[in-house]
Nucleic acid binder design. Structure first.
Length: 580
RNA sequence: CGGGGCGUGGCGCAGUCUGGCUAGCGCGUCUGGUUUGGGACCAGAAGGUCGCAGGUUCGAAUCCUGUCGCCCCGACCA
């Protein structure tokens, strides 16, 4: 492609509103353009990178035995009603009605396709002989994000590879899952991403096992917990915490004292007023577990984890109680709950066990207790791990300190079980003529996020550092002065030769000064730059430079196309190990 | 949904507090010329409903009311 004939609107300055590197660079390099919040046009350069990521995903899915199909993004609302996900998705599901002759048709844009694919399988699969089967598609998904952000990292419309496996047994599911897991590793390796496969919460979608593929990045929305000692890695939502000293509280001599804490309904306000540390306080959170109130005690400097609470209580639904429930249960407004005198079941995080005496809410407006001692002033029904891990907490496997890191989720695999196959009657007959729901797994990759995560993590001060596998073009041909006949004759000849050798070449044929071409070239990050003109040409040489190296080299003009094509080929063959 | 910030030629900004000539600056664009190894220089030119609507005023980019949009923090996120 000749630069003058395509659209690569590079920008010298950072557009207003772009803050994180991927957003800034994708806009500045002319990869994407914004239409509105959460909706971006993929410009020619960005689309090429996206297509490359898509193709890598497709190749590895095919290699893993998955088969591609394409389902409609337009779906009937009834399908979502059958599985109860109209409510589960809520405002995220984009719904609308259209008129068809004399009736209204209620539709939804697919945010994911468990329903559609399961419905499909229920129509065509009826025998164990047809299973296992893994179907996938690469398609635009629609989710009405409450708040799109971070440029292309979180948008309302995005390209997703979604795969669904159907098996006759749990062993089968495990095999299908492992195949996808391995395929994901190959995909992200080929894309040159530094990723971590972490244990993840499978969420209300159901299922018993789940992994997320995370690219570590400071601007990532997710938090993962990682143990450098043994390699344990998990999403913060899911991360277990190692053994904590559940020692009995020291016999405290402090009396239980009621103190006035007017309007201090938060940990921060109380610590300020009483001059104590958050770690000397106990937060008393009133949850509604399957509609029944329960108190959960968490040390003041810790964060409650609803998933852990739900599992500990063996409840199917847990949420913070409504203010009026709290008022009714504690006799106080939100912010002043405490365990002393509470009549509902009391659970506590393990760390609460080791607290000698604590500051707690007094179950009365504008009041707290100092010197509350477990066993004397209140009792805890049961202890469990109910909080988020923190930096330095012990690893659940090896007890080494855990580290918290931000990350971008690029892929997610999980075992679904039979939730959808039961709801939508995707059943098969086994060899004993028994009817069973298919056992499902589902596997997603955010294709746009591959690109955004790559840019986010692989750049320098001058621009993007594409790996060969995702680069919009492999070679940037830069004739320094397009008005010199000799230079352009050579450039055109090289362009033709390289193109015929199946090298993807972008030729900067703009009538611009060298500085402009170099700056733009670095910004868009094409791996190999070939300069024609100037000093080197006088000596019968071309200058070549890898984007990620500081120094340029020269190669003889004679046989240059072959030499460059060889360089490109060898770089293509490398894994990401040597590219950035 | 709560909190904060911002809307002025294609891009980045000043001007708004304290209303007052023809709305400026840098980049980019166009024309002509000189240049050509890290975002050149000279001369000339085009390009604006100051987000939108209403109000106050002799007079509004500027003050008031409403509204739309974008960004950030938080809540939410199968």
């Amino acid at each position: 492609m000749r630069w003058s004939q395509t659209l690569i609107p590079t920008m010298k300055e950072t557009p207003e509103g772009a803050e994180i590197p991927s957003h800034v660079l994708m806009l500045r390099a002319g990869l994407v353009g914004q239409l509105m919040a959460g909706a971006y046009t993929y410009l020619p350069l960005g689309l090429r990178a996206l297509r490359k990521a898509e193709q890598i995903v497709r190749e590895e899915m095919d290699r893993a035995g998955a088969v591609e199909l394409h389902m409609p993004a337009l779906t009937p609302i009834q399908l979502w009603q059958k599985t109860g996900r109209v409510d589960a998705f809520g405002n995220v599901l984009i719904q609308f009605q259209v008129k068809r002759q004399n009736r209204q048709v209620h539709l939804a844009l697919g945010p994911t396709h468990e329903e559609v694919v399961t419905d499909l399988v229920s129509r065509y699969v009826s025998s164990y002989r047809q299973l296992p089967l893994t179907l996938y598609q690469i398609q635009t998904k629609f989710r009405n994000e409450e708040r799109p952000r971070f440029g292309v990292l979180r948008t309302s419309e995005f390209l997703m590879k979604d795969a669904y496996s159907f098996d006759t047994s749990l062993e089968g599911l495990n095999q299908s899952y492992d195949k996808m897991y391995q395929a994901y590793c190959r995909i992200f390796d080929r894309c040159g991403l530094d990723y971590l496969a972490v244990e993840a919460e499978s969420g209300p979608i159901g299922g018993d096992a789940s992994h997320e593929f995370m690219v570590l990045a400071d601007n990532g929305e997710d938090t993962v917990v990682h143990c450098a000692g043994c390699g344990y890695a998990a999403n913060l939502e899911r991360a277990d915490i190692g053994q904590r000293g559940e020692t009995a509280p020291a016999a405290a001599s402090d009396p239980l004292t009621r103190v006035d804490t007017p309007k201090a309904g938060s940990i921060e306000a109380v610590t300020k007023m009483l001059g104590c540390e958050p770690s000397a306080m106990i937060k008393t959170l009133i949850y509604s577990a399957d509609e029944k109130p329960v108190a959960v005690l968490i040390r003041g400097d810790h964060e409650a984890n609803e998933g852990k609470i739900r599992r500990a209580l063996k409840a199917s639904k847990v949420e913070l109680a409504a203010p009026d429930t709290i008022q009714q249960v504690t006799g106080a407004p939100v912010g002043f709950a405490g365990p002393v005198g509470l009549k509902i079941p009391i659970w506590a995080d393990s760390d609460v066990a080791a607290m000698a005496s604590a500051v707690v809410g007094a179950n009365a407006a504008d009041a707290h207790f100092k010197g509350a001692v477990r066993g004397r002033d209140f009792e805890v029904g049961q202890f469990a791990d109910l909080r988020n891990a923190g930096d330095g907490d012990p690893c659940p496997r090896c007890a080494a300190p855990l580290a918290l890191r931000h990350a971008v989720e690029v892929g997610h695999v999980f075992k679904l079980g039979t939730k959808y196959s039961e709801a939508l009657s995707a059943r098969f007959l086994d060899e004993k003529e028994q009817l069973h729901p298919a056992i499902m797994g589902c596997y997603g990759i955010g294709v746009n996020r591959i690109i955004a995560a790559l840019v986010e993590t692989k750049h320098d001060d001058n621009g993007i550092l594409w790996p060969m596998s995702l680069a919009p073009y492999e070679v940037l041909l830069a004739p320094l002065n397009v008005k010199e006949k000799e230079v352009m004759t050579l450039a055109n000849q090289l362009y033709e030769e390289l193109t015929h050798a199946s090298v993807e070449v972008l030729m900067d044929d703009r009538d611009q000064r060298p500085g402009v071409k170099f700056k733009d070239g670095d910004l868009i990050g094409i791996p190999l730059r070939v300069v024609i003109g100037g000093r080197s040409l006088k000596d019968g040489q071309l200058e070549i430079k890898w984007r990620w190296r500081d120094a340029a080299e020269t190669i003889p003009l004679e046989g240059a196309a072959v030499a460059i094509a060889d360089l490109v080929q060898s770089e293509r063959n490398l894994s990401h190990a040597t590219s950035p």
